[in-house]
Design a protein around this nucleic acid. Structure first.
Length: 515
RNA sequence: GCGAAAGUAGCUCAAUUGGUAGAGCUCCAGCCUUCCAAGCUGGAGGUUGCGGGUUCGAGACCCGUCUUUCGCUCCA
């Protein structure tokens, strides 16, 4: 695989995903799909479910002080005012067709206003030199030229405010045209229409659509945890420090969604908000950085494929933030974020809801708003990181090649496949009975078509870690061969040992024990 | 969003200057087979992404549109 170029390798992953039923473009029969939306197929759904289960068990089952919830995608609209999402992502944008540069329309207009203000200041400076005992305020309110400038500014601001409040984007563009604002780079006035880019998708409740019942699709799952913080703390009798975990869909109206399932408009997050005593957040921040990295390393995809990236520029809610990055075929990219969110979110929700979201600390005999350390990982990105690391073209002795998906066995869609060596002499019947016993506890595949070598290759390509083959000896001594996907080596084992072998090698328990 | 390239069977790709849409692999039904793809026979699968246009005739040329990849841009 080393001689495959990264971009070709990436295309290889996309076609492999499609060919074997991991990922399909959404609504593909119409126009080749909906942009940047993908569906998980029969194998993809299994793999994704197993990844999610592993995360959930590592977080919730293995930590007595972490509990899981499942909050709704729809939330009260005020939630997003409190979180800052409504204000932060409502920018009117405009492009210059010649320079291809994009600007915020409001910034262009503000800059134009600032230029006029400069002119006023120059008039004031000039006048200040001419007169002693100069009164700037008096000058501004009486000088005809300055008053003209100021009237212009007021008119622009008033017109812009009206246009924005009416959400009249055509008028915003008309302002830019009327003011003859030019692009600083191309110097031309060749503008596109003004468009509103909002990060959040919205819809409305009830049959009648109006401003009052607009409702957003959540852009992150975290807020569902924050608004339930007190419910969980009280009903679960949780003591600090404790965590609330959740997995679920989130929606972001990305301007550009790209790179297969790496950046999608509809995606799944796995988040855990850890509530701690103020002042201890940096210890926990470090703890969760290391704990989460260990979790990723336990997948065995290679330690060199992971690294931390500490944020220098912090979001408004954070006092420390780092990403765990993974080396994708297109470079190191963010996989998981660990953020120290302070008490920003809970304080905001206190303020907007008017409800206290505090914790009574019996040791201090005092109440306070806890600090929060967040771990937030994209399930789809995790899926892509595992798939792209696992997919290999191997050269075998004799010049053969094989395609093998070296998934961590505990995450593989099928844990084992059962084959009769030949399709006669009672071998299929024995193979089917073995499979029927095992499928109560394991996802099993069965295949009797084509030569056994071909069947091994088919299972290699979808990541099945073990192939169990029934041969003529099996009829005599109740043993079968079990073949390892990665080494291609076979062992002969008793049929009644299969269950314990598969449990040991393919259960999530084996992974959890490494943490 | 801009620019470049691309879109033909499930996958990878062909199809002389515009002239009957093909191959390999895959898949399905059989045959043959005592352990690592590529043995035999037969079969399925396509309004060439979609919609217009030019032409006697378009997979190919023109326009629009959708989708993908790459580069910018964006991503509190």
């Amino acid at each position: 695989m080393s001689n495959i170029k990264p971009e070709d390798f990436f295309k290889n992953i996309i076609s492999h995903s499609k060919e074997y039923g991991f990922i399909f473009p959404s609504s593909e029969i119409y126009d080749n799909g909906l942009s940047a939306v993908y569906d998980y197929g029969q194998l993809g759904a299994e793999l994704k479910k197993n990844i999610r289960d592993y995360w959930w068990k590592a977080m919730v089952q293995m930590n007595e002080n972490i509990v899981g919830i499942d909050s709704a995608i729809f939330m009260h609209p005020t939630t997003w005012k409190a979180s800052g999402h409504v204000d932060a992502f409502n920018d009117p944008l405009i492009d210059n067709k010649d320079s291809k540069k994009r600007y915020r329309a409001d910034v262009l207009i503000e800059e134009h206003v600032a230029k006029i203000e400069d002119k006023i200041n120059k008039e004031v400076e000039k006048a200040a030199k001419r007169f002693e005992n100069f009164d700037a305020a008096m000058f501004k309110s009486t000088n005809a030229r300055v008053k003209e400038y100021q009237d212009k500014i007021d008119a622009i601001n008033e017109r812009f405010k009206t246009a924005l409040n009416a959400n009249n984007l055509d008028e915003v563009k008309q302002i830019i045209v009327d003011l003859e604002i030019v692009c600083p780079i191309s110097g031309t006035k060749n503008w596109t229409d003004v468009r509103q880019f909002n990060l959040m998708f919205n819809t409305s409740t009830g049959a009648v659509t109006d401003e009052t019942n607009i409702i957003y699709l959540r852009p992150e799952t975290a807020q569902g945890i924050f608004v339930n913080y007190l419910n969980v703390q009280k009903t679960g009798r949780m003591k600090l420090p404790f965590g609330i975990a959740q997995t679920g869909k989130a929606f972001r109206n990305e301007i550009v969604a790209r790179q297969f399932i790496f950046r999608m408009r509809e995606f799944e997050q796995m988040e855990m908000q850890f509530f701690v005593k103020p002042g201890t957040e940096m210890e926990w921040y470090e703890y969760w950085k290391q704990t989460r990295l260990k979790w990723h390393l336990s997948l065995g995809l290679g330690a060199e494929k992971y690294r931390f990236h500490d944020h220098l520029k912090l979001a408004h809610y954070a006092n420390a933030a780092a990403d765990i990055e993974h080396q994708f075929p297109f470079g190191f990219k963010e996989l998981e974020g660990i953020h120290s969110r302070t008490d920003f979110d809970l304080k905001q929700h206190e303020q907007f809801s008017g409800k206290k979201l505090q914790y009574f600390d019996p040791e201090l005999n005092a109440s306070y708003v806890p600090y929060v350390v967040e771990t937030s990982v994209g399930l789809d990105r995790l899926f892509l990181s595992i798939l792209s690391s696992a997919l290999k073209e191997e050269s075998l002795e004799g010049g053969d090649t094989r395609t093998v998906l070296s998934l961590p066995p505990a995450l593989a869609p099928y844990k084992a496949a059962v084959f009769p060596l030949v399709k006669k002499d009672g071998l299929p019947e024995l193979a089917e009975s073995i499979m029927k016993d095992l499928k109560f506890d394991f996802m099993m595949a069965y295949d009797e078509k084509d030569t056994v070598g071909k069947r091994y290759r088919r299972q290699d390509a979808i990541g099945t870690p073990f192939c169990i083959t029934v041969d003529h000896q099996s009829l005599e001594d109740k043993t079968v061969t079990i073949r390892d996907r990665d080494t291609m080596k076979q062992d002969r084992v008793a049929i009644d040992k299969l269950h314990s072998i598969l449990t040991e090698k393919t259960s999530l328990q084996s992974l959890l024990k490494t943490l």
